[in-house]
Each structure stands twice: as structure tokens, then as C-alpha cells.
Design a protein around this nucleic acid. Sequence first.
DNA 1: ATCCGGCGTGACCCTTCGGTGACATTCGGG
DNA 2: CCCGAATGTCACCGAAGGGTCACGCCGGAT
Lengths: 242, 242
Amino acid sequence: MSTPAPQIRILVVEDDPHLAAGVTENLRAEGYEVISMGDGKPALEWLRDQPCSLIVLDVMLPEMDGFTLCRTLREQGNSTPVLFLTARGDPADRVRGLEAGGDDYLAKPFHLQEFLLRVRAILRRWDWYRSSSDTPSGAVLQFAGNEVDFRAFRARAWNGVVQELTEKEAMILKVLAERPGEIVSREDLLERVWGYDVFPSTRTVDNFILRLRKRFERDPANPRHFLTVWGVGYRFLVEGES
Amino acid sequence: MSTPAPQIRILVVEDDPHLAAGVTENLRAEGYEVISMGDGKPALEWLRDQPCSLIVLDVMLPEMDGFTLCRTLREQGNSTPVLFLTARGDPADRVRGLEAGGDDYLAKPFHLQEFLLRVRAILRRWDWYRSSSDTPSGAVLQFAGNEVDFRAFRARAWNGVVQELTEKEAMILKVLAERPGEIVSREDLLERVWGYDVFPSTRTVDNFILRLRKRFERDPANPRHFLTVWGVGYRFLVEGES
DNA sequence: ATCCGGCGTGACCCTTCGGTGACATTCGGG
DNA sequence: CCCGAATGTCACCGAAGGGTCACGCCGGAT
């Protein structure tokens, strides 16, 4: 993980004690801090003033079910990523989960390995978000007169024009800016921004680079900050020299 | 090049000798300890009592294929990170690899540079490898006023001109500079830089030497750093005397 | 139902890289 | 000193990659 220092905290809401124990154990073994609860109510309570990086949420719970809990959270403006667990593999359930504002969905019984894989994928995808919202310095990027606020997806370009960034634009920029000067391959970008099981073509990445250049480069045709690394990917520079 | 204090050990399981050689060489040059094997069976055997930090695993192997090996490892509770290599770039294969418990996936033919990027990414993700590796002393080469940053394929020549190196130029320079003063044959260079499945003529090497001389020698016609060893290959000198 | 913005893709064109051949030059041995 | 072989040097070409645009899809808002 990129940020080992601040422990990554995961909330598990699961009423089956056996499953809860197994999941908790394995997550702890991976180095995460895990809080476990048996129903939606206390979870909602706890989440009111406790932040965490991920919620693993059973759909079927004694009182407040998972969908309701998730929807409630979203209505409250809480955008913590949610991974749903469900007894049956009904595809309709997956849709319902995503509609309720979930991020991923896993049918029981599942292989622990696949579960851990999905957890890692979600956290990786949201990595950028945590690093911006937690540390004030990471929330704003400045380069060559441009100023980007990742929390609001808003930027003011060098010429003073205020721009609304789309989600993907912001995420790509964030991933690039995390490693200024280093080469980031298209595949890296795809994985970090889109996730491990989605496969847009690499040309899609090019298009977003194009958009970023149009937004932030003084001369988009001769980029000084969003540089192409031929045959590999792209590289972001804060300082642009000839 | 970069020599992290605790030696990082990587197991390569690959049946194609050419590919195995290229991969192994390049990993060694990065400072890793590399063990190479041709099939899954011995690998599984070896892993029973030998730890390592990363397994580079070909999907197609003579007897035990990569997926099976990986799945077996996971069932045994071995969570060593796995990077899959495969012949075809089928996206579905990627998911299969990840669900078998792999951590990343690379389709052949790949650029060696991309491969190394991924290895670093995985090791960094697992934190068995600190971000100190982002600026190892080995990533920068200095000689006769020239300064080369291998991470970024970028150099500033003695006269102050900033140059973007191509992938091949950078890799040839790197291979030469790894053994200053030693003779490197054209065949060595071909093996290290092109690695596998491509075999250009040795004259191609000469051309790249020519380019390097133009970039870094004060008098390209009288080279002091990129010396010809007649009938064999080339030799790189940091200190250039007549 | 309609509109709209985000996003993914295909198509077209241009650039870059890498590899080769041709010719000049140099080296080394006889 | 001469000649063949290896290397220096350059120009060129094909292939692959990237820049750019326009279109189509889809989900959310009107």
C-alpha cells in the first residue's frame, strides 16, 4: 500500500459470527484495522463520527438491511466505498447494490482470495480520494499557474478560467501528479482509475490526456507538463522547461 | 543498480529460455536476487521452504501451468505476490489470473521497461520495498558532465542540453554503464536490451552507439567514453582519457 | 420524451522509432 | 603497404504508436 503509516480501517457489518470472524481475521492478516458489527443500526451510529476507508456490508441483516444502510449513508453525503456481500448470486441483487450506491458486489459463498482481491481493488481505486481528503496538502495541486482542487473536481487554469473536471479527468490527473517526473504506463492508469476488471482501450487514456492538455497546457500541441513516453505511457512534470 | 539493503529475491518461472534469460538479467541488473525455473513443479517444491518477495509466472508451462501453481500456493496459505506473463492479451485472462490469486498480469510481447515498472509497482504495493527505491543512486548516471536519469529516460548533456532518450538508447546505455571499463559484446547487448523473440543484426547496435556518442561525446568522432573494442563489442568509460 | 454531458471507440493522419543497406573509413594481419 | 573485414556514418523506409476529431451510447436531469 502506498500509505502504510496511517492504518487503513475497514468496517465489517455481518451478522453471521462465523463469516464475520473469517473475514475479520483475513483482513487483519493483510494489515488492515478491522471493526466488526452485527447489524446496520450500530454501524450507522458508529459511522456518524468515525471515518473508515471501506465498509464490507452484508445485504441481509437482522434489523436494518445493507441496501438501506448504504442508501442512508449516501443520502447523508457519506461516500465511503461499500463492498456488498450477499447469500444468493442473483444478478438483480448486484444491480440493486450498485443502485444503492455500492462499489462492488460479491456472492456467498466466495473464495477468500477473491474477496481480498476485491478489497484491494476498491482501496486502490479510492486511494487517490483518501490521500486528497485526509491531507489538506494533497487536496490541491499547483503547477504552472494552474490550481486544481481534487475535492471539488474544480480547477482554475493559468489564464484564470475556472473549469469543472470530470471524475475521470480528476483521477487521471491525480494518479499522474502523485508521481511527478515518473513514468506511468497506460495499464497503470487504467487499473488505478478504472479498476482491475474493466477494459477500456488504451486509446481512452490518450483522450483524457488530450483533454487535460487542452485544459492546462498553454500550448496543448507542445505539452510541457503532460509528456508522452513513447511506447509506455505518460509522465507529469510540475516544472515545465523546454 | 539499485541495491536495497535487504536483498529482494524474485522467482522466475518461465519455460522459454530466451525470455527467461532476458527477464532474469534485467532483474539482476536492478539489484534483485533471481532464481529461475522452467516449470511449475520444481517451483512449487522450491517454494515449500524458500521464501521470496515476488514470483514472475508464465501462464503456459510444460506440465503445471501458472494458474494452477498460483492457486495451489494460495490454498497452502502462501501469499507471495505473483506477476503473470501470458502469450495472448485476452482481457479475460487477466481476470482469471487475478482470481487465481495473482496480483498483476502482463501480456507478451511486452517492453522490458514496462515489465520492470510493474515489478517495482508490485513490490512497492506490498511495501517490502520502500519508496527509497524511487530515487536510488543507480537511477542516475553521471560522467564527464553528462547526467542521465534512467527513470525518466532523460538526460542533460555536458553542454546543458536536455535530451529525451528513447527506450533502446536508455537501455543500451544502462547495460554499458553497469560494467564501466568492461567489454560488452554485441551479442550481450542484444540479449540484454532486446531480450527475447527479436533478433536484429549487430549493425543495429552500432547505430545506437553512434547515437549515444552524438548525444554525450564532446567529439563524437573521437569517443572517450563509448569505446570500440575491435572485433568484439564496446566498452564504457566514466573517466575519459586519451 | 427530450436533452445533455460524460465517456468510450473507431478512423484518419502524422510522428517517431528502430532496423537495414550503402558507402566511407579504419583497423590489423600478411 | 595492401587488402579484406569490421566499424563509422548517413539516409531511408516500414511499422507501430500517438494526436486528434467526431460519432454513438448511456444514464441522469429537465
